[in-house]
Simulated scan of single mutants.
Amino acid sequence: MALHFSSACFSNFGRSTVPAVRAAASDQGGVAVKTAEEEKVKLGGSELKVTKLGIGAWSWGDTSYWNNFDWDDRKLKAAKNAFDTSIDCGLTFFDTAEVYGSRMSLGAISSETLLGRFIKERKERNPDVDVAVATKYAALPWRLGRKSVISALKDSLCRLELSSVDLYQLHWPGIWGNEGYIDGLADAVEQGLVKAVGVSNYSEKRLRDAYDQLKKRGIPLASNQVNYSLIYRLPEENGVKSACDELGITLIAYSPLAQGALTGKYTPNNTPSGPRGSIYTPKFMTKLQPLINRIKDIGEGYGKSPTQVVLNWLIAQENVVPIPGARNAEQAKEFAGAVGWKLSNEEVEELRSMASEIKPVIGFPVEKL
Rank of each mutant, 00 (worst) to 15 (best):
E357C: 10
K241N: 08
E350F: 00
S59E: 11
I182Y: 05
P268L: 13
S163Y: 07
A138Y: 12
E98D: 15
E300R: 15
G29L: 06
A25Y: 03
E350T: 12
R276E: 03
N312H: 03
L106E: 11
R217D: 12
F364N: 15
L144S: 10
V199D: 00
L234Q: 15
F335G: 00
A132K: 14
Q308S: 06
L207M: 14
A132H: 09
R103Q: 14
G239Y: 11
F364I: 13
S223N: 07
F94N: 07
K304S: 01
D187E: 14
L234Y: 11
A316N: 10
G29H: 08
T135S: 09
E300W: 00
I249R: 07
Q289H: 07
Q331L: 06
K52S: 10
N12R: 14
G260E: 01
Y228P: 02
V348S: 05
E367L: 13
Y266H: 11
E190R: 15
E346F: 01
K75P: 01
L247V: 05
P306K: 01
K287H: 14
R146F: 03
E367M: 13
P322D: 08
G198P: 08
V99A: 05
E246P: 05
S7E: 12
V320Q: 03
F284C: 07
V339E: 02
K241C: 06
N269F: 11
L185T: 00
D212N: 12
R143E: 07
H4Y: 13
K265C: 03
K147N: 12
G218N: 08
G180E: 11
L3C: 06
P365L: 08
G180Q: 03
T35P: 03
T281F: 09
E349T: 13
A108C: 07
L291W: 10
I252H: 00
E237M: 12
K195C: 08
A36Q: 03
P306L: 00
K304F: 05
R352Q: 13
G56D: 02
I292L: 13
V133G: 06
T307Y: 04
W71Q: 02
T250N: 07
G340W: 03
F93C: 02
L43T: 01
H171M: 11
S229K: 05
A108Y: 11
R117G: 07
D62Y: 02
P360Q: 09
D95Y: 01
I323T: 11
I87E: 01
P282T: 09
E98K: 09
E367D: 15
R125T: 10
E179I: 09
W60I: 02
I362V: 15
L144N: 08
L144I: 13
E367N: 14
L291I: 09
G277Y: 06
I358F: 12
W71P: 00
A132G: 02
A210K: 03
K49I: 00
N270T: 07
G340I: 02
L351C: 11
G325M: 08
V129M: 05
L144D: 12
L91D: 03
L43F: 04
T63M: 09
K287L: 13
D297M: 04
A82W: 02
D95P: 02
E190K: 15
L144H: 13
N68Y: 02
R159G: 11
K195R: 15
C158M: 13
S353V: 01
I87T: 02
I279Q: 05
L115S: 05
G363H: 07
L170Q: 10
A57K: 01
R208G: 00
V133T: 10
S242A: 14
Y232N: 11
